[in-house]
Design a protein around this nucleic acid. Structure first.
Length: 274
DNA sequence: AACCAGAGCAACCGCCCCAAA
DNA sequence: GTTTGGGGCGGTTGCTCTGGT
């Protein structure tokens, strides 16, 4: 079933908004809010569809919108977040206060894609890119025959389960990772249950890990008889409020964690040239 | 001055998700 | 369990601006 576009209804205006229309919309929302977008234009006396009003408000008229050019810092953040999240513009916008998904999408298509292409044309840049590291640890995990089998994500808790996929290991090697942020302090506790013995890790392991993987900072780890506990702390870019729906990113973080763990323990095959 | 091409950006379109009926 | 409708999202369009010829 294809729903006909609401603006095709008789008499509804399309195209650029006039300053008068903007003012009507602003006045109405300031007075009454925007409980029901579909009903809003009629009540406000606008010859627009609700969708058009919502878009105009969220992308342009909202008082907390930051206008003007993107700073280099903002652009770098977008590039990094795009690397992590892909074309999830609203998720990226959630981490850039005052910027809208539409604006970020436009900046990406007009500026940043070009910038990235230029960077990738430079082999030195390419070698050191996070993408390359990411591919390496995914490959490594594949070789280890560890893969995520279950993942669920909510605003305040995450659950992730890994298992070994080779038949001979399947029954003996199962690890379950449960994350929670009970105190809502951006510190995420993980309980790892696994038959695999965790190698002992020194201070350098954690400092290197947090340097190379800026989304997450390991703060504490202990492993006793295969029952491991560790504490994550996310960088400011990775707040728990906005983590909902970032399953793929958490996979990356956990993949990275496992990769480093087993790499350090010398359990990785000779397949990496990071 | 006129024309053209490309860049930038606001707005639209169609689809999806989810809650309410 | 199914249908319906509102809201949100990502992709795309098309208008405007700008710089080059």
């Amino acid at each position: 079933m294809v729903r006909a576009p609401c603006c095709e209804k008789m008499g509804l205006k399309k195209g650029p908004w006039t300053p008068e229309e903007d003012q009507v919309l602003i006045n109405y929302i300031q007075l009454y809010g925007h409980g029901n977008w579909r009903a809003l234009p009629k009540q406000a006396g606008l010859l627009r569809c609700g969708k058009s009003c919502r878009l105009r408000w969220t992308n342009y008229l909202r008082p907390d919108i930051k206008r003007g050019n993107f700073s280099r810092e903002e652009e770098d953040t977008i590039i990094k977040l795009h690397e992590m999240l892909g074309n999830r513009w609203s998720a990226i916008a959630a981490r850039l206060p005052g910027r809208t998904d539409n604006e970020i999408k436009n900046v990406w298509h007009t500026h940043l894609k070009k910038r990235l292409k230029q960077n990738q044309a430079n082999p030195e840049t390419k070698r050191s890119s996070n993408n390359n590291i990411s591919k390496c640890y995914h490959d490594a995990l594949h070789e280890l025959e560890l893969e995520p089998v279950n993942f669920s994500s909510h605003a305040k808790s995450e659950s992730l389960e890994y298992r070994a996929v080779s038949p001979q290991e399947c029954s003996s090697d199962m690890s379950t990772v449960t994350m929670s942020d009970d105190n809502n302090e951006n510190k995420v506790c993980l309980k790892v249950e696994s038959q695999r013995n965790f190698p002992e890790m020194d201070e350098n392991f954690w400092s290197e890990l947090s340097t190379e993987n800026s989304e997450v900072v390991m703060s504490e780890f202990s492993a006793v008889d295969g029952d491991a506990q560790l504490q994550f702390q996310f960088s400011p870019l990775m707040t728990m409020e906005s983590i909902d729906g970032y399953g793929s990113n958490m996979h990356d973080s956990m993949d990275y964690f496992w990769f480093n763990l087993f790499n350090r323990a010398g359990e990785l095959p000779e397949l990496l040239d990071v």
